[in-house]
């Protein structure tokens, strides 16, 4: 993890900016959406952050599988391989939190604009839910194996499958079926169509970076706790 406190500070600052400006800034006045367009700054970054975090988890899983001499590189009482596995699994955990938050917040937004908590014909909703389940299975798989080395290896392999599956479900299938209610899908105009002066982007992109940095902070804390737990376990 990156040393120092500056990135945590930056993340909190960016989120403060998004919460304040996300609530008070002028937004395009549209029918049906009305003020709920502000959810663009809170619901959508959940998914962007989740995808980014899944990607980091994937990278560490690949590093785990590619690492051949990690057994002998012991640091802080843990082998290099185990440390890579801890990092991969903790990124996936927090990514899953963001996935659940994305589902719940999306459900609230759907109720306000599509008049239903869940639209069953919506490919993107179903794809997201199925994608979340693929990652839930990752943790069930981890929980099912006692031996730490074996758990780490199976989980790393599964993580690659889960990432590909997730991307197909959430990004590929909705574009093929092309009948989504989501903006920018199924022939609907994206938010970029209303954002002629890039006003929304000025809040949206800082929000994405802010959430990723905050998530990285949570991951950092969880990795440290997990390492302590593992060290006590091996003692």
């Amino acid at each position: 993890m990156i040393k120092g406190w500056w990135w945590k500070f930056t993340g909190v600052l960016l989120l403060l900016y998004t919460i304040v400006y996300g609530l008070v800034a002028d937004v395009p006045q549209l029918n049906i959406l009305e003020e709920s367009i502000r959810n663009l700054f809170f619901h959508v970054p959940m998914w962007f952050a989740m995808m980014f975090m899944m990607m980091i988890s994937l990278v560490y899983s690949i590093m785990y599988l590619a690492n051949s001499r990690g057994e002998s590189q012991v640091n802080e009482g843990l082998t290099k391989k185990i440390r890579l596995d801890i990092i991969a699994s903790q990124w996936a955990t927090v990514a899953l939190l963001f996935g659940f938050l994305g589902l719940l917040t999306g459900s609230v937004w759907a109720r306000t604009t599509w008049s239903a908590w869940w639209v069953f014909q919506e490919v993107k909703l179903n794809g997201a839910a199925a994608g979340i389940l693929v990652y839930v299975a990752y943790f069930i798989l981890r929980g099912a194996i006692e031996d730490e080395e074996q758990k780490a290896r199976v989980a790393a392999v599964y993580n690659i499958f889960a990432f590909v599956m997730y991307m197909v479900l959430i990004n590929v299938i909705p574009r093929i079926v092309d009948s989504s209610l989501h903006p920018g899908n199924g022939g609907n105009p994206g938010f970029s169509a209303y954002d002629l002066d890039s006003h929304l982007r000025l809040i949206f992109y800082p929000a994405v970076i802010g959430w990723i940095l905050l998530a990285a902070w949570i991951v950092d804390l969880r990795i440290r706790v997990k390492k302590m737990e593992m060290k006590n376990f091996y003692k």
Binding site: I19, L33, E35, F42, T112
Partner: peptide
Amino acid sequence: GEYLLRGNKLYAVITVLVIIFIGIVIF
């Protein structure tokens, strides 16, 4: 669900923020 529509649907945004906050508190 009706309450989400209040205040020009601003209540939906507030609910979303509360959900995210609760998620972080659970962690």
